[in-house]
Design a protein around this nucleic acid. Sequence first.
RNA 1: GGCCCCGUCGUCCAGCGGCUAGGACGCGACCCUUUCAAGGUUGAGACACGGGUUCGAUUCCCGUCGGGGUCACCA
Length: 664
Amino acid sequence: MRPIVTRFAPSPTGHLHVGGARTALFCWAFARRLGGRFMIRIEDTDQARSSDESARGILEDLAWLGLSWDDGPVLKRTGAGGEAEAIGAGSRAVGPYFQAQRLAIYNAYIEHLVGAGLAYPAFESGAELEARRKAVVALKQTYRYQRPADIVPGVVSEARWARARAGESHVVRFVSPAGEVLVKDSVLGDVRIAAGELDDFVVRKADGFPTYHFAVVIDDELMGVTHVLRAQEHLINTPKHVALQAGLTRLIDDADASKGSTGVRFTTPVYGHLPLICNPDGSKMSKRDKAKAARKFLKDQMGKDAGLTAAAVAAKIKLDEKMVADFVAGEIDAVEVATAVAGAYGLSLPEIDVWDYRASGYLPGVVMNYLSLLGWSTGQKNADGTDVDRFELGFIAANFSVERIGKKEARFDRAKLLAFNADVLGKMPDEEFLRTWLRWLAVHEPSVHRGLVGADRAGGGKDGGAGGGSASTPFTHEQLLWLVQAVKPRAKTLADGQRAIGFALVDDGAVVFDVGAVAKVLRGASAPASKDAAPSGRTGLDVLRLAAAELRGAQSPDQSGHWKSELIEMGSLPVGPAGLPVSLPAGVSVSLPAGLPAGLPAGLDSLIAGLAQREGLAIGGVAQPLRVALCGSTVSPGLGHCLAILGPARALARVARCLKEFDG
RNA sequence: GGCCCCGUCGUCCAGCGGCUAGGACGCGACCCUUUCAAGGUUGAGACACGGGUUCGAUUCCCGUCGGGGUCACCA
């Protein structure tokens, strides 16, 4: 038996999108499960649209997702742990893995096909065919290329080749078989395409490049691909591939047809067509969706504002006017226009590329987990009766099977992905979260990264100077962990983190006090009293003064700029109903989670609770005014964390400023 | 329009002739609570329709309807 080989064969015409990522995942998992090889091939036969940057980006995305390939282009990169890796370095010698470098091979096989009378040059121009197609469609009939009357299957058309050799521009078409074509599909079952449905499709374009259909068939055969898993949109192409395989035999020399054929027929790989991934509205999720969204936005805006012309838009987004006009007219779907429009007008584009999810702060493992569930399931149950649906990449590799691939198209549910991501983030140990978060911030939010760890961390010395002041207060590792604790339950993605800790990133003198919060909490009616106490009759500002004194007293007496250490011990005690620590019976102790410098946030919370109790106030009566003074609003992480993160100096400075601003 | 594929809660999956049709996300309620989150408990919610086959259909067959894909010198 031949060793199992699967392949993922993207065309480098943009980013890797989630549908492609799932296809790659399934191919990878299938190969891993069965001990086969997973291969990457770059299908760059579209000269106009392919680019090396795109190919590189797609490989990067695959690597980020954790999919490594055994065969294919070599990608040198730095792994998640900072180590250098070279994916694809152990490839079999069946390359090159870029189709544009395999032209000699395709030509040899085309020549071979021609010699067998199974391919012929055709001279119609694109415009000519287009006109014919339009005419047929106008009559509501199905357009198919009509085989020229002089073509006889199995007979070489010398007259046509004479024209071609004379330099006349031409394509090469395949002489399609007359009978029914059967496609055996491991997901869908048998699919039959009736005789006559296949027309003589093009196998070599006028520019000398093979078409997709031809190149795939040749490469899959020559590269030993045994199993092809691809999206269902390709199902309709498969008869073409099967027909080609039936007409082709292996050459003695793959790059030279004149050496003759071995007579060995091409093998048809096992096909499996995956259900499509769709938008919430049920349409196919495609890279063109970004263009669609941007176009709709522009049209709406132009409809509202007559002054907004293509020229005006072009000027604003700094792109060619004609390009913008074509874009709006729907002539082109250029992503760069869509992206530029989104950037300039604050429009958010649908997230469809793997890169989009990277930038939004999703974890690669979660993306893979979620994607695997689109069209596949484990069929396994947990002990508690729930489905097995949360797992890592390795689990997919160990459990994948084609039998469990579904047939129905799946709609992409952003909310569910988000929930999965939040779940994993929430369960991540603090240290790991911190590493992951900082790594993400360094790439996607460098200024926040600088605000957290300082500007000169990543080498290069202190020369970055321009920004000066605001980046001057990097946090200690301990404070960073408290930041993480504040962020974790509030972040569904890594990008959510900054929002939760915005208060800590802003300079003490720049805290913006929310008008509504000030009115309600600081100046409003009396601060809420504790349950059995009489109404306090004191405003939030009154309470804030008390709190300020309390905080002053909580500073470390050694002037070290820390909170006093007793708070840490206080924070290690169990908390009673009033929010205050309960003293432990002799001999009993509580153990804190290992390695956590915790205690302090809890101790600070207790400090607030203690103040509230002494003053006959509800905890909120103290907490809310303090929260506004510290963070500017009534929404923030737990107060203990806020105080711990800021430290006494910053906290007191903020309270003082607030008092100065609103008191009297 | 031709051809092809598909059809279980709003969404994603489980079910492979007999089940109180299960789980996840979302949604509702309640609890917890110093704000926002998080967490806990709990509830509502589906076999598209019509014919067969069968003692018995969500499950098998046919049709209808509905959804999607595809009809290029793009892949």
